[in-house]
Design a protein around this nucleic acid. Structure first.
Lengths: 341, 341
DNA sequence: ATTAATGACTGAACCGGTTTAGCTTAGTCA
DNA sequence: TGACTAAGCTAAACCGGTTCAGTCATTAAT
């Protein structure tokens, strides 16, 4: 069996309580005794038992993340693994663990949070993929679980948000394309029920009108390759056929690019394309993709920091991360003189 | 405060012990009393407190996964998210949770396991990315943590392995290319320190000799897009330049394909390409990629099942999953008459 | 009829910590 | 000198379960 606090107490010749005080740096023991207890604890190789600690202090020393995605499509999104890695870099420093739940449906998602709460598995959670009407806010309030959200939801939320503005990058993409002579710039967006799907569309729209252009065609897709392909097909056969398309993520952009090429179009000679995320693959495509880095690693790290400080009693203030800058590669070029069919 | 077992005992007019027996379906209470206790528990809305349960039974009701990857590259591998989703589908049914740790280095990986063990965070772990000389086996034995491995490691292991044979798919890729007339078939493999990097290379090698061909050029890459590109470049400028390349994963294949195209080569007219994984994107590339599905979802589900049954005392027998079959798409075609430069 | 065995249940110990209440002892001040 | 205070520590309760040892009544065996 492992060394317990009682073993330390016995060897040091004091009571359990004194050991607890000493180990937690609390008053109630003299300097001399404290040092002696600490020394004995070290000699015996004492390690706190998390379960016992959790039972008496009603804490889990863990934070939760519920990922709501179709499991089959989860692998296609490069955001989560890197985001999780970012969370971890913070957690390891604080002896916290990450409990991950994957939910296939909205119901399963809610159930996921309820279970984490009911079982006391976590002390707080991180909310990703914020939705325009997000029922999770109220749910977590009722469950009394502290949370941190990625970007500020539109509904009022008592939880701190870790914000990374994506409108600047999209606006830069529009300006970049406009400077190349494009006037018909379409947008293949994510679901508008997500705030990042929405904000990217609005950013595109605003940047267009700022440039004195009509917003042009918008198609609501679903962040998947299949959705990106279908949306691209629709845009390319539309009357107002664009010469450039801004996609809300790299996956859709990649699928769109491949589809355009399969039609015999050249990217960027016949069609310019931009993505969002800057996945590793983006650099290695033919042509390499002009895109906006999302930096999920940083986002995860800061979100976890914010959550831990919130658990420590810090005030719930929002954090603003630097806006990612457009990375120009070869998938964007001058507007074609005579569009090809 | 939540309803405790003592509350149930008081209301039902019995002792705590009787309630515990009744709720766990253990002998020691009569049918009538048991029903009464169960009824009271339900009425009061009693839910077991995991922490308390864990403290007395010395269990965590969670399993662990330590992912050792460069966090920056983690997002590029579609395997993990889907694998994790598979694990979850099993765990939710058994009221278990998944504790995820991300490690950037080998040292951090070992520390990750040690911490999970020391803190009693998990009752067992799943080992992925098995290496030829895998020190984790001995480590987990010494930490006394039950484990399940993905495929059987070469070093002797007391842990059950959940095996999915990848040699059949690679062999099928070779046969497919041979039937198209290819004789010079290269291989861009993963690190040979990984058993799946090694087994795929051996499968390629064996299939080649079985077809009466020389094995041809092999390059050891690292499963990344950058590595795939570099390896492809090396193969294409070699004296024994292949007309077809079998990659150990889709990411390298995609990077290789894009690179070949950027040189002005046509895939598959000048160069045939196959991958491994069958990521969502594979279907949407231009041309769509001939590849072998890895089914990480199934693998995760079964691995978790095996681990839970192991924790339940079941014998440590290996499980064999069906070998995935080659999916032929448009990235493979007849051998070119006169190879282009 | 006596003893043994069984079933149903209780009380208390236990898991390994935290925390409260209380007890000594020494020091301060009037 | 006596009352009061504070520091330093102990004993015990507590968190919410599990489990062991023992009590008592009933039934079976001799």
């Amino acid at each position: 069996m492992a060394v317990t606090i009682s073993d330390v107490a016995r060897v040091a010749g004091v009571s359990k309580g004194a050991v607890s005080y000493a180990l937690n740096g609390q008053p109630g023991v003299s300097e001399g005794t404290r040092d002696r207890i600490l020394k004995v604890a070290k000699e015996l190789g004492w390690k706190p038992n998390l379960r016992a600690k959790g039972l008496s202090s009603a804490k889990a020393f863990a934070v939760g993340l519920v990922v709501a995605r179709d499991p089959r499509l989860l692998g296609t999104d490069p955001f989560f693994p890197a985001f999780i890695a970012g969370i971890e870099t913070t957690l390891v420093e604080h002896e916290y663990a990450l409990v991950l739940t994957v939910a296939a449906s909205a119901d399963a998602e809610e159930l996921g949070y309820r279970k984490l709460a009911a079982d006391g598995r976590v002390d707080g959670v991180i909310l990703t993929d914020m939705r325009v009407e997000d029922s999770r806010i109220a749910l977590l309030e009722s469950l009394k679980i502290p949370a941190v959200t990625l970007n500020r939801p539109e509904t009022s939320s008592p939880f701190p948000a870790v914000c990374m503005d994506d409108t600047e990058g999209i606006a830069a993409a529009v300006e970049h394309l406009v400077s190349l002579g494009h006037t018909k710039i379409g947008h293949v967006g994510g679901p508008q029920s997500y705030i990042h799907g929405r904000s990217r569309r609005l950013a595109w729209q605003n940047a267009m009108s700022k440039a004195g252009l009509e917003a042009g065609s918008f198609i609501e897709a679903d962040f998947t390759a299949a959705g990106g392909l279908a949306a691209t097909a629709e845009l390319l056969r539309s009357a107002q056929r664009p010469t450039a398309i801004i996609y809300a993520n790299d996956l859709m952009a990649t699928a769109g690019q491949s589809y355009a090429q399969s039609l015999g179009l050249s990217v960027p000679d016949d069609l310019s394309i931009t993505g969002y995320d800057d996945t590793e693959l983006a650099t290695y495509l033919n042509p390499p993709l002009t895109t906006v880095p999302a930096d999920p690693l940083l986002w995860g790290r800061v979100a976890a920091q914010k959550l831990l400080s919130l658990l420590g009693g810090a005030p719930a203030e929002d954090v603003y991360l630097p806006s990612p800058k457009l990375v120009v590669r070869a998938s964007t070029g001058p507007v074609p003189r005579t569009p090809k069919n």
